[in-house]
Design a protein around this nucleic acid. Structure first.
Lengths: 247, 247
DNA sequence: GCCGTGCCAAATGTGCACATTTTTATTTTT
DNA sequence: AAAAATAAAAATGTGCACATTTGGCACGGC
């Protein structure tokens, strides 16, 4: 019994984060198609970490409602119903209405200036046809609104909602028109400048309904995304235990 | 080696739930004082389950922001700052404003009748001095409002917020006056009946500010709650491995 | 007398070896 | 031959044995 100094218990929280971020990123970028099964053992091989670590990350993502966990059957990328998407959008709409109701009470020139600056950025990106930036800035507008309240609770809520709708967008939304119209954002700021809560809420509501209206109505049965190894390829294996599971 | 048929791997999800509910309940009922450390091994002994099971539950509660998890140092009952409490209340206020903005667009007689019935219950409980029921119904009012929208996302958000503020209430709120005034709830319903969004939001806002205003301003250093075994005593041990850890 | 240093006990984190459940493939029966 | 039944294979869930880290305490130095 030669005291096999096992290499267990490394206590490396960075590894957890790395795996978590990698899967989350793939999820947010839409690289993982809806309905794909995320088995523990293959992922452990791909990332070169123990299965328990994968398991922990998967359960965490499940708790955040970003993965669908079925007891004894593992984790799957959720396949949201059109109704699910609508509910998330509605929640976003409701939350923003609340944010606006609080915001009209404390608008100041500084905030308005910041929002105007953001609108200018959005317009610039739209004019030069930079669609990627447009999409990013379009989402950032709503983040700006909620962060103006300086309440981490609310910011986190909206963040969760946004990340989830981002994933859903990749399923149901036509890629071309997925950006919010800059005019509508401008209208919200204008209403805010006038301290007109009812108009702000109405405009915001219209805005979200527009986005919702663009959702594709057909539920195309998202196919399983094969070869997971390729999806996580850009991420360097943390340990060199991973072998290419090429078929 | 007589094939020690180990009793591991029982795959009993009910046990998880039981432990989770027990701790959550103690948390919500304020039996666990803020700052109390929840070590894994003692809890495992108390509940008569394995440490891993406790660990899983503790991490889940941490993910739900109901416990404060410190790496390598375990779980503690959070000791919220007064600012923390205010932020949760503000989030609740903002969310309800959004709910109301959506609700005025779809109020019908059925909803109003239900709310009236609830108000009647509240008044009855208040008149007969049933404080426990009053507190419960008072929270249920806000739940009714959000559930009227029929959106599970929003309901879950409010549920999280409510449960957290419930815990905080036990720290900062004077026990006697912690109930919402029925009149204020009635005023919200009245504004809803008139489809007057601005008034509904204003009344709701006032209502929450009243509750916030009653918070105790002194941060009393909540002492550690000793003898955990007694706190979880009403819960029957799941296995008979627990011995009374009386000092 | 007080602070820095090093050891000891306790609590948390992790990998592994199983048990259990699910899924798939094969066989048998009507 | 199709469907039900059965067995094998794979994947998930769990307890346990460690390793690692943390906190306290004694000892010694300034």
């Amino acid at each position: 019994m030669a005291m096999r100094a096992q290499r267990i218990g490394k206590a490396n929280p960075a590894e957890d984060e790395a795996v978590y971020q990698a899967i989350l990123r793939a999820l947010l970028e839409g690289k993982l198609k809806a309905g794909t099964k995320l088995a523990e053992t293959p992922l452990a091989d791909i990332f070169g970490v123990s299965r328990e670590r994968i398991r922990k990350v998967l359960h965490r993502l499940g708790a955040e409602r970003r993965l669908e966990m079925i007891p004894n059957r593992g984790a799957r990328v959720p396949r949201p119903t059109l109704d699910d998407v609508r509910r998330v959008y509605e929640a976003h709409r409701v939350l923003e209405a609340g944010v606006l109701s609080q915001l009209v009470l404390r608008v100041d020139d500084l905030l308005l200036a910041r929002l105007d600056a953001h609108l200018a950025e959005e317009r610039a990106a739209a004019q030069r046809g930079d669609r990627a930036t447009s999409v990013r800035l379009s989402g950032a507008f709503h983040v700006h609104l909620v962060e103006a309240l300086g309440n981490p609770e609310l910011s986190r809520m909206l963040g969760d909602l946004l990340s989830r709708s981002s994933v859903m967008v990749s399923v149901y939304e036509p890629a071309a028109q997925s950006i919010c119209a800059v005019d509508e954002h401008g209208a919200i700021v204008a209403a805010l400048r006038d301290r007109d809560l009812l108009r702000a809420i109405a405009v915001s509501r219209e805005h979200f309904l527009h986005v919702e209206g663009r959702l594709r109505l057909d539920e195309h049965g998202a196919s399983e995304s094969e070869n997971l190894a390729a999806i996580f390829a850009p991420v360097k294996p943390l340990r060199r235990k991973a072998r290419s599971a090429q078929s």
